[in-house]
Amino acid sequence: MKKELYGLVICGGQSKRMGTDKSLIDYYGKPQRYYVYEMLEWICDKVFICCNNAQKESITEKYKSLPDLPQYENIGPMAGLLTAFNYYPNHDFLVVGCDYPYITTKDLKEFVKSVKPDEMASAFYNPEQEIYEPLLGWYSHKSKNEIQRMYGNNEFSLQQFLKENEAGKYHSARPKNLVSVDTPEDCKIAKDSIIRKIQI
């Protein structure tokens, strides 16, 4: 029997550079956290929005949420993954952040097909910056213990986890879709670009 894949939408907090909660930005006629959730529903058996407790209050009821457990609050995106592993320790997770408005269902489907089951984790890889994109990644249930070990050592970087464990590097056929939008200026450019694509 094939193992179920669960999807995690990583909300994050209020970005200092953006000046607002990126999960609430509307690129496609709805808050980005719901757009990503619905995109993941095409790929995953279940989907959850990982959020802090303040964000949970504003999440519409039809979307399942996983608020960060108290012990993991304020440690960044790792909190969402650790919370998910706490509830579903035997599942693999496809993680997508709300920072990537250009990413498509096709990109994610191709990525999931590329994942090797014997890997601990895999993520989109940005060859220009030579870094992983940890919030566009797949984390197997086998990664749980290592991520928990890092947490115990006050190491909260998923980028560090991926590097140290030689995670799979996925080179997208459409690297421009990997752009992370973190400022109001880039947000406006993304909105204008997306509107043009929709109108074509």
Rank of each mutant, 00 (worst) to 15 (best):
T104C: 08
Q14T: 15
A54R: 12
K2G: 07
N153S: 11
C11Q: 06
D26T: 12
R174A: 12
M39T: 12
K109P: 02
D92N: 14
T20Y: 10
H171A: 04
K176G: 04
Y28N: 11
S180R: 13
V181A: 01
V96Q: 04
T83P: 06
F161C: 13
I25E: 09
S58N: 09
Y34W: 02
G12C: 06
G76L: 02
K176Q: 13
P101T: 03
I200Q: 14
E164F: 09
D45N: 14
A123N: 05
P89I: 14
S114R: 04
A167H: 04
L40C: 06
L66D: 03
S172R: 01
I103S: 00
V47L: 00
T105H: 05
L94F: 12
E4A: 13
C98R: 00
Q71G: 00
L158E: 04
I147L: 13
T20K: 15
D45S: 14
D107F: 05
W42R: 15
L178I: 07
Y100M: 03
D45P: 01
I147R: 01
A54Y: 13
Y63M: 08
Y27N: 08
Y151V: 11
K46N: 11
G152W: 02
Y125H: 02
T60W: 04
N154H: 15
S114T: 11
N126H: 05
Y125L: 03
A84Q: 08
E146C: 01
P77G: 10
M1E: 12
A123M: 02
E110H: 08
V112D: 07
L94H: 09
P70M: 12
V47A: 00
T60V: 14
N86I: 00
C11P: 02
M120K: 07
G19T: 12
S65D: 10
F156E: 05
N53Y: 08
K64E: 14
V9C: 03
